[in-house]
Design a protein around this nucleic acid. Structure first.
Lengths: 251, 251
DNA sequence: TGGATATGAGTAAATTTTACAATAAGACAC
DNA sequence: GTGTCTTATTGTAAAATTTACTCATATCCA
């Protein structure tokens, strides 16, 4: 029987890659490290995160982080991967963590989450007041500890999910143009998309409904606004089961 | 700043859903609970698992579990989901865990893994000596704690991955007939597959190579053996990027 | 030798994808 | 108002893929 090498003094944290989409592309929410010690600068950027509390699930903890950093409840939130490398937190960082949180722990294992937020002026104002920043996904240079890995992993998973489930709509306002949806896919997947064919595919899916409303004050033919038809999606989920083996082996 | 409600006395465990495939279909490896206490029967079935050690990553811990339960190294192993509900372990179960492992902990958070094993007579013999059993996936009735959830989640993820990545081959011997591969897809996805079309698709993918060897002693036209061409897969990965939006929204 | 059974090749129709062309509708400059 | 610019939206023909079958083949077994 294994003796006391078993680790019973781990703290578990959650770190959230919060994504938003605006006219400039895909953004991620970053905050600054607070309560610096020694060489660790207060300007270092990180993903929003928290330690889990004694009577909390990870999902709860992640939701709490989201509430604090964006002011929003009921955000789309999914677990990604656990980062458990014993050396992911340097002794110095561990000291900072223990001091900051007023705890004693030998190790911090973190669970990655990603969240999708509909960017609105209110959210942007809220996050700004909080000292958080929406950073263009291509512009993220350095994050503390292994947060760059956590973000990269979240992005990989986001891409994969984007093609399998209708999560794109979580990043758009309730009413959106098909061009906007196309740009979103294009930004997230990093590919060019033919708008005629995209439109056909999306409309054929029956998952979006025309509103009859149109853009105004645009220097071109105004596009119609559409909404995501959640009930149609649920219905389709039940009925269809499409086999798609090798199509996607090359991912 | 949050006070000491932060949980620094969690133990972290891994639980592995180990899948195998034989002529009767998809199997999962189950073991019996050892060192029972009170009402907790030694006959209760569970997934193989372990507590993580102080200097171990989760992946290491899962690999260790696999080594112990199957004797194999270098098994295909993937993280699934973390189960962190504070009440996932009843007080009684917690007592059992603490006593069994000789530790003190307030809570056990577990990380699910799934593993894919090529079933061979040696493996079967090894696991049998270990008191483990390969149970038909449809025949699993009850497992301890939330192991049923962990298994179900692993199975969901297995199905999804099966259609996106060539993990099927991890469950087959090096040389296999296309019929065997078809039966595997059929078993895992729970669908009927047309063999003519399946063959065409698989061969067109270029991911399997004919060996020139054939079955013997079968009461029908002998089928050829094929092998998985890993290099072709890697090559295809680099070159191709197939966009497949809505095909798979209905999953 | 004939029957049973699964392999493996093939095929035609239906469907989907792809790569474009063409038209439409507003804003804006003049 | 007229012409231009820009994107929306519709359409279409060729190419590729999927689907539902048919048929000849190779082995074992009675």
């Amino acid at each position: 029987m294994t003796k006391s090498l078993i680790d019973t003094n781990s703290a578990i944290s959650v770190d959230c890659a919060v994504f938003g989409f605006d006219s400039n592309g895909l953004k991620v929410l970053l905050i600054k490290r607070r309560y610096p010690v020694d060489d660790l600068s207060a300007d270092d950027l990180k993903l929003p995160g928290a330690m889990i509390l004694e009577n909390e699930t990870l999902q709860d903890a992640a939701a709490r982080v989201l509430k604090e950093s964006t002011g929003l409840k009921n955000i789309f939130l999914r677990q990604t991967t656990i980062f458990s490398d014993p050396s992911r937190v340097s002794p110095q960082e561990l000291e900072w963590i223990c001091r900051y949180h007023n705890i004693t722990t030998r190790r911090v294992v973190t669970v990655g989450y990603y969240a999708l937020v509909k960017l609105t002026p209110e959210i942007i104002a809220y996050t700004r007041r909080n000292g958080a920043r929406w950073v263009d996904i291509d512009m993220v240079r350095r994050l503390i500890m292994d947060h760059m890995d956590i973000l990269g992993n979240a992005l990989d998973i986001l891409q994969k999910e984007f093609t399998h489930t209708p999560i794109a709509f979580e990043l758009l306002p309730r009413k959106f143009t098909l061009r906007r949806l196309q740009d979103l896919f294009s930004a997230v997947l990093g590919i060019h998309i033919d708008s005629g064919n995209f439109r056909k595919k999306i409309l054929a899916s029956g998952l979006v409904a025309a509103t009859g409303e149109f853009e105004t004050n645009v220097a071109h033919k105004p596009a119609q606004f559409y909404t995501f038809d959640k009930s149609a999606y649920k219905k389709a989920m039940k009925e269809k089961f499409k086999l798609y083996f090798l199509d996607n082996w090359y991912y």
